[in-house]
Write a protein that binds this DNA or RNA. Structure first.
Lengths: 345, 345
DNA sequence: TTGAAAGCGTTACCAG
DNA sequence: CTGGTAACGCTTTCAA
């Protein structure tokens, strides 16, 4: 491997071009409006000849700008979140920013990430989290250091942060309403991990929609669909639902993968989707598109885009008021939902 | 938003502690072995009191170490690759490195990423790519700048890079051999995107295995399974295979998602998997675990881990010889493969 | 055991 | 229009 010979600096360029360091700096930074054509060209040629690239670290020391933003992925494993990374990186780069990524498995990781980002002088931080309740005390440190911070899907309790969330409650509410409009009266819900706020919000939306449409709440229609656990649990839950004296004609699963298992299990009992039973997922994972799953879309990718925009905006104007944005979860109607069997000819 | 008040520096700490800057620096860097206990404690207290964190940018200027490595995701979209990001970030952080991530959609993006990484003085770069042939000329620039570089799944032609690849050829070879050992004689292969090297390698493994086991090569057993295209194409391919005068008893799909569609299509024709037909995927995507798919595992996550190790090693010892590592693609036998119908009682 | 001073590579600010 | 020169915050000799 080639040894790190003396790296070429702005000084070398200046010397070779027979101009001062300042002049080269001006060329580099486009302050060449009032510069003599020949000097400009000469300097540019020498820069090109040596493939000289300024040391941004040195630049950062003075400008106090690092053109870097930090992204903390907190307890994130699902492909959907990772996809939004693509979008975030892209938007950031378009605006001239690089992305420092850190994957925080737990609270300790998160604190460590924040420290590192702080030391590396990031200009802003985006947190992309699951909706589990988290200790937010280290966010205070970011505030003290005046580092703009955007919280995505964290449902932070403080109004002192820019936030992007999505409306899990109305997502499920709308799904129930849609199923009701198709004629369903027996609608079951598989519930996700208990600790997540999203689970509670969805349950709330479910109950509210039942009430609004004069449908009774039956607790046996609520079954475990914890997507962080084993698929066998979801199978069991589905079988329990199907063997009920009054089995549901529609099942809202806790996510798309759970929905896939539900569909599979339903088929194993000789029933057809959506003829005998409708299934609706949550997520809208692209890689499952072959299922043509009706699903409640989580606007995670859009949230990422918005988060970057908000962050860039705040970096530019630190004093605008904080914003809390809540996105809708649109219902995507595909081929796993339809009218219940009774109403069919 | 709080205005960026004067940030606290090493100078402030030194002043308040009544010691010199150097002393604080020594405390910070653990060179406190020969330091008087009381000074050490006093300085540490003041550091803690102000929650002072040294500016790594300034440190980097002198030490020429940024504790940052760059990760270029080239044309990567699949969840599997993104998962390896987790591992890479984790290993890197454990070794004290941060990850600067860039998603390169095309060659232009890649060049731009390299430039940025170079300017930001990363200490090493990992390329995580699809196996499509790429222009590698910009990699030369990294070499000139003495930035250690690891190529993952790039099958670079130069022996002047550390590389991690996996053996697509033997992966498919072993799958065919396994199916043959179960009694299958009619084995079809769905082929991926033509431009990818992996597609060619898999085809090669397929042909070699047929030859080795005295099975005839039938070109009608080769159908389009381009996973970058529409699932309908895979459905069509599957139907073509099933309607052949001598339909295959086993299908090796181009990836796990394609396999899922194949299974679905097979079932639609009233056949059962694996009773009537065996299906084997490629990837071993975690989120499809509910399918219990027999599959050729791509060791992408492990490749990521190894890539980081190689990189850290080379950063530490720049002069060791370049290594090209090729990982096996283990065959994971689950529930979608079994003996062909003829041999069953 | 501690401190003073010389950089690291760049930008910013004035003078000329 | 161009060139000196003082920062930026830290590490690293080397001297005391």
């Amino acid at each position: 491997m080639k040894r790190p010979g003396k790296a070429i600096t702005i000084k070398d360029i200046a010397q070779e071009a027979g101009v001062s360091i300042s002049t080269v700096s001006n060329v580099l930074n486009g302050n060449s409006a009032e510069m003599r054509e020949d000097t400009l060209v000469r300097v540019q040629q020498i820069i090109a000849k040596h493939q000289y690239r300024p040391n941004r670290i040195a630049r950062s020391m003075i400008t106090r700008r690092t053109a870097t933003i930090g992204l903390v992925l907190a307890e994130i494993e699902t492909p959907l979140f990772l996809q939004s990374l693509n979008v975030i990186e892209r938007s950031a780069r378009l605006a001239g920013f690089n992305l420092l990524v850190s994957h925080a498995r737990d609270a300790k990781d998160e604190v460590q990430s924040v420290d590192l980002f702080l030391e590396k002088q990031v200009e802003g931080v985006i947190f992309l989290s699951t909706s589990e309740r988290k200790d937010d005390s280290h966010l205070e440190r970011l505030r003290e250091a005046c580092v703009p911070t955007i919280l995505v899907n964290r449902f932070g309790r403080s109004a002192h942060h820019d936030q992007v969330n999505w409306d899990n409650r109305s997502g499920v509410y709308n799904a129930v309403e849609y199923l009701r409009s198709l004629g369903h009266q027996e609608i079951a819900l598989l519930t996700g991990p208990k600790k997540r706020l999203s689970t509670q919000q969805r349950l709330e939306g479910y109950k509210q929609a039942l009430t609004a449409h004069n449908l009774p709440f039956r607790k046996e229609y609520l079954q475990n669909g914890d997507y962080t656990e084993d698929p066998d649990n979801w199978r069991t839950s589905t079988r329990i639902l199907l063997s009920l004296p009054r089995p549901p004609t529609a099942i809202i699963a806790s996510d798309d993968i759970v929905a896939a298992v539900v569909i599979e299990t339903v088929r194993e009992t000789g029933r057809y989707v959506p003829r005998d039973i409708s299934v609706i997922g949550i997520d809208d994972q692209a890689f499952l598109s072959f299922l043509s799953l009706s699903t409640i879309q989580l606007p995670i990718v859009e949230a990422g885009r918005i988060a970057v925009d908000m962050l860039l905006r705040r970096i530019a104007e630190p004093d605008i008021p904080y914003r809390q944005i809540t996105l809708d979860c649109p219902l995507i109607k595909r081929r796993t939902s339809g009218p219940p069997p009774e109403t069919q000819p």
